[in-house]
Each structure stands twice: as C-alpha cells, then as structure tokens.
Design a protein around this nucleic acid. Structure first.
Length: 327
DNA sequence: TTCCGACAGTGGGGTCGCAAT
DNA sequence: ATTGCGACCCCACTATCGGAA
C-alpha cells in the first residue's frame, strides 16, 4: 500500500527573521547551512523536491532519490537544505552554484560535485500533517526516522546549548551561522516568522572607495553602488567588488557630493577590474575610507552579501588593509 | 497616536541558456 | 563567435503603507 500513497503536497518553506541569537529555555538552535532550500515530498518510490520559489528541482538533484529507500515507503514531507560540501565537510556555496542551474545534470557532474541533503524539519508523516505540531515534537519525529544515508543526513539536535555558544562553534568550523527556533512554534509556510531567528557570522572590512556606478529608478539621481578596494601586504590596491546596499537617502547624497570632486579618468586599482564592471564605473581618487560588513570572500576575492556601514573619517586610505587570512 | 510587519524596489556575487549582434 | 540579458539561486537593506497595539 505504501507505494500507492499520494505524495504530500509541497508547502512554501518557512523563513527566518534576522537577529541576535535569542536566549532562554524556549529556544533550540541549529546550524545555518549555506546552500539552497528544498522541500521534498516522498511516498513509496516517488520523490519530488521544490525550491524556495516553488520550482520543481527533483531532476537537478538525483541524490535525493536516496530518500525513498531511507523512508522505506513511509510517505513524508521534509524540509532541508541542499549543500555541496568541500573536502573539509563545510558547505561551499561557490561549488553548489555549478549544480544549482543545471536542470538535469550529467552523471559526470554529479560525480564531480555531489550534493548532500541536510534535513532539518518534518512537515508530514504517514498521511498526517505536522505543521501545527510544535517544533520540538516535529524534531523528535524527524530524529526518530533515523535518516542517515550517503547523501542525506539529519544534523543531531543541540538541545541545551546556548545560541551564542553554538555561534562560536559555527565560527570555529567555518559554518555560516545559526538559526534559533522557538520550541513551541508551529510551522508557518512561506512566512518570515519571528519564531525562527537566523544569525549570520559577519566580517567587517575597512575599504577604500575607488569608483561608483550610477543608480537606476528611484536612485537615478544618486549612485547605485560603490567599487571597493583594500591594500594588500605589498601595498597594491586590490579590487573587492561592489556594495550597493546599506545607504540611507542622505548617505547617498553625501557620498555623491564627496565623490564628484575626486573623479579621475583611470581606475585607481592595481588590479584589473572585469571589463563589464569597469565599463559602467566612474573612477575616483582613492581618498574615501569606509566600512562594510560581508559574509565571505568568493573565490575571485570579492565580498559576498556586503552592506555599507558608513564612512570612516577617522581613518586614512592606507588603513584599509586586507586581512591575511581569517576563517 | 505610535509602532510593526509585509511589500516593493534598489543594490550585490554567481551560473546557465538563449536571443541579438 | 561573442555579447547582452533575463531567470534563477543566494542575499542586505531602505522606504512606504496599512493595520495592530
């Protein structure tokens, strides 16, 4: 009978609000996985996965087929993250990007860049919807399933560990951050709920502004993004990419006023800026120093998920130095 | 009245696929 | 053959508006 059970209908994944890790016994914490979200329905031999926006991604990740065996015919709806693990077992979003956009990957690609499915919630089991069950109950049921395959896993619970402590563990292991979940909370499909709180580890970096691009739409009269750099140990101004968010309206006007007098014809970077980025850029003398926060450096040495924090009038351009190697 | 949550709109790094050049 | 662009993924953030408190 199990193999004729209907697939549970997919639901839109619940989202987390951003914030500091909450404290108190009402909260449980998980690691935050740097990958792509997938809600997966399983029944008998059937496995069907959907992305955050509801696109079907089953064929993109053949690794998910393992769920059918692991569940042994029991119909279920799982929530989790598809990740590509590096040699050290850490999620590497850059690697995953080579898989993300391929609808039906060749075997060669799957072998070269295998993905894993990290399951962290159970939304439906044996025909029973669990959305209204409290988080701790769903978690119990999930752990009792014992899903442990070669490409599927359920990270162990961290009951009793404070969020701030788990965040330090995440930092030590090169993970992205932590997510706190209210133990009594139900699953709220598609909602960015305060019952889930994500805390991402951030780096701060002092930067020199080497150029800017014009804004569009609402920002057509000010600037779109700043082109950033920092000095390496040899004293070369390296290119770190753009930052286009974190500005208030008044900061945008102020920055433009300061940038216009600094304009020059040539790029101030001692490193070639990719052509289509350079094409839209207006260069300035590298005199303005500011601060940004970002998540990680990409393989190209660019800051990913950066946000502007403000000018640092107290600093000289030469103070904006690249870290040798944190992480 | 004030505050908060949801939404729209701006911006980023990246890959892939297709249409225009 | 190359280039440009949008569609997807991930995301940070500001401004705005309507309803809750």
């Amino acid at each position: 009978m199990a193999d004729t059970a209907p697939l549970p209908a997919p639901v839109a994944p619940m989202l987390a609000a951003a914030g500091a890790p909450p404290a108190g016994p009402g909260w449980a914490f998980e690691f935050k996985w740097d990958g792509v979200r997938a809600v997966t329905a399983v029944a008998g031999d059937l496995v069907r996965a959907h992305s955050r926006r509801g696109n079907e991604v089953t064929r993109a990740y053949p690794e998910l087929a393992e769920l059918a065996e692991l569940l042994d015919g029991r119909p279920a709806l799982l929530d989790g993250e598809v990740v590509a693990l590096d040699a050290a077992g850490r999620p590497d979003f850059g690697m995953l990007q080579h898989r993300m956009h391929v609808r039906a990957p060749a075997r060669e690609l799957v072998e070269r860049i295998p993905v894993s499915y990290v399951v962290f919630d159970l939304l439906h089991l044996d025909g029973t919807p669990l959305l209204t069950e409290p988080y701790h109950r769903r978690r119990e049921l999930l752990e009792a399933l014992g899903l442990a395959g070669s490409r599927v896993r359920v990270p162990p619970g961290t009951a009793g560990v404070a969020g701030s402590r788990l965040l330090e563990v995440a930092r030590a292991h090169g993970l992205e951050g932590v997510v706190g979940k209210r133990r009594s909370s139900r699953y709220e499909p598609g909602k960015r709920s305060p019952a889930w709180v994500k805390t991402a580890l951030l780096q701060t970096q002092e930067v020199v502004v080497g150029g800017w691009t014009a804004g569009e739409g609402r920002r057509s009269r000010t600037l779109g993004a700043l082109l950033l750099g920092a000095y390496d140990e040899r004293g070369d101004l390296r290119y770190l990419g753009h930052v286009g968010t974190g500005f208030t309206e008044s900061a945008l006007r102020d920055l433009l006023d300061r940038l216009l007098p600094l304009e020059q014809r040539l790029s101030p970077f001692d490193e070639e800026v990719p052509r289509d980025e350079a094409r839209r850029a207006r260069w300035v003398r590298p005199a303005l120093v500011g601060e940004v926060v970002y998540r990680v450096l990409t393989r190209e040495g660019r800051i990913r998920h950066a946000a502007w924090r403000g000018l640092r009038a107290d600093k000289d351009p030469g103070d904006a130095r690249l870290y040798s190697e944190p992480s």
